[in-house]
Amino acid sequence: MAHGVEARVPLLDRSVVKLAMQVAGTLQLLARWIEENGWRADGFLRELYVEYCADDPAAGVTELQQPVTRA
């Protein structure tokens, strides 16, 4: 390793980046639905990894949970 470098961090796998972009898009849809249906977010969003596939992250199932109250 180079002088002063303690560790090297590998670049993110493209499938992980693609998955993160899909989750971000779904979060936007969820936020829009909440607002359009007379609700408002009330608490922290949670991501629950129902089915995680290490070999193919895009094949996994992620559940988004957003506490809400009436606006």
Rank of each mutant, 00 (worst) to 15 (best):
M1K: 11
A2V: 02
A2T: 04
H3A: 13
H3I: 09
H3K: 15
H3L: 14
V5R: 13
E6C: 08
A7D: 09
A7I: 08
A7T: 12
R8D: 08
V9K: 14
V9P: 05
P10A: 13
P10D: 08
P10R: 13
L11T: 07
D13N: 14
R14T: 02
R14P: 05
S15G: 12
V16S: 01
V17T: 04
V17K: 01
V17R: 04
K18T: 14
L19A: 03
L19C: 05
A20Q: 12
M21E: 12
Q22N: 10
V23N: 01
A24N: 09
A24P: 02
G25A: 10
T26C: 08
L27G: 02
L27M: 15
Q28L: 05
Q28R: 04
L29G: 06
L29V: 02
L30Q: 03
R32W: 09
R32G: 02
W33M: 12
W33G: 03
I34T: 02
E36K: 13
G38F: 06
W39A: 00
R40N: 00
D42H: 06
F44Q: 12
F44H: 06
F44T: 04
L45R: 09
L45E: 11
L45Q: 11
R46F: 11
R46W: 07
L48R: 15
L48W: 13
Y49E: 00
Y49M: 04
V50K: 14
E51K: 01
E51Y: 03
C53L: 10
C53E: 11
A54K: 08
D55N: 04
D55G: 10
D56F: 06
D56S: 07
P57L: 01
A58H: 01
A59C: 08
A59R: 06
A59D: 05
A59P: 01
A59V: 06
G60E: 09
G60I: 05
V61C: 04
T62D: 13
T62M: 09
T62G: 02
T62S: 03
L64F: 05
L64H: 12
Q65G: 05
Q66C: 02
Q66T: 05
Q66G: 02
P67N: 13
P67I: 03
V68N: 07
V68R: 10
V68C: 12
T69G: 06
R70M: 08
R70S: 06
A71L: 10
A71G: 14
A71E: 10
A71W: 10
A71Q: 15
A71R: 15
